[in-house]
Design a protein around this nucleic acid. Structure first.
Lengths: 114, 114
DNA sequence: ACAATATGACGCATATTTACGACATACTTC
DNA sequence: GAAGTATGTCGTAAATATGCGTCATATTGT
C-alpha cells in the first residue's frame, strides 16, 4: 500500500487489504495464536517461542500494533502484548462479509457468463 | 513465503498467511469483488475497470489463479475468469476459525496475565 | 551510582512485490 | 495467409518486506 494507485480503490478494499497484509506472514499469524492461547504475553517470551531473532519478532509485533490488532502495556521492565479482541471481531465480520459475497457469486465455472 | 524460515511454522499458519497475502492488495480484493458481482468475467473487461495497466492486472490475476482462488477458461480469443467458490468457502472457514480463536482469548488488556 | 536485563529504534543486506512497456503467442476474420 | 485482437510472458525499475546485529533507552536490583 501507499505504493499502489491506492486512492483509486475504495476505503473498504484498502482496509481489507491492510489487515490481510498483516496476516500475510506466518510469524504474525503465529504471534496472534500465541497471544490467544498463552496467559503470558510478554514480548521476550513470544520471541523465544518463534524461530526468529528477537529483533525480527519485535518488528512483527510493531506491525500488528500499528494496525491496533494488538496492544502493548509496559509493565516495568517487560512489555505485555494483548490482542485487541474488539477490533479482531470487527475485522472478522469484514472478512466474513467479503467471503460471503465472494462465495455466493453468480459467476461459477460452466455458467452462462463464461 | 519461501522467504521466511517458513518451515518452522505449521502448515496451517503458512496456509493462512498464503491466502492472506493473496488478499493483501486492494487490486486483488477488487478483482474478487468484481468477479462476484459481474456476469461478465473476461480478462480484458476486468482490466478496464481497474486503475492499473492491463499487464499489471493480468499479473494479479495470475497470483490469484496460482492459489486456485480463481480459474480461467479460454473461450476462443478471450479468457473468462471465475471464482472458485468451493475453495473460497473453505478459506472462509479457516479464517473464521482463526478469528474465533483470536477474539475469544483469555488474555485481554487489564487481565491478570498482563 | 552501577551492573544487569528487556525492549525498541536504526542501519544494512537480501528477497519479494508492484507496475508497466515491449514482445510472443494464439485465435478470429477477411 | 494476412491483419487485427486478446492475453500472457519477459525484462526491468522502483518500492517494500524480511531478517538480524548493534546501539540507545528505560527499569530493576545491588
Amino acid at each position: 500500500m501507499t505504493y499502489a494507485k491506492t486512492s483509486a480503490f475504495t476505503e473498504e478494499q484498502q482496509q481489507l487489504a491492510r489487515v490481510a497484509k498483516a496476516l500475510a506472514h506466518p510469524a504474525r499469524v503465529a504471534i496472534i495464536q500465541l497471544l490467544a492461547s498463552k496467559t503470558t504475553c510478554i514480548s521476550g517470551d513470544i520471541a523465544a517461542e518463534l524461530p526468529l531473532s528477537r529483533t525480527t519478532v519485535s518488528q512483527h509485533l510493531q506491525e500488528l500494533k500499528a494496525l491496533d490488532l494488538i496492544r502493548g502495556e509496559i509493565d516495568g521492565l517487560t512489555v505485555c502484548y494483548c490482542l485487541n479482541t474488539e477490533l479482531l471481531r470487527q475485522v472478522h465480520q469484514q472478512f466474513t462479509a467479503f467471503f460471503l459475497e465472494a462465495s455466493s457469486t453468480a459467476c461459477a465455472p460452466g455458467d452462462a457468463c463464461c
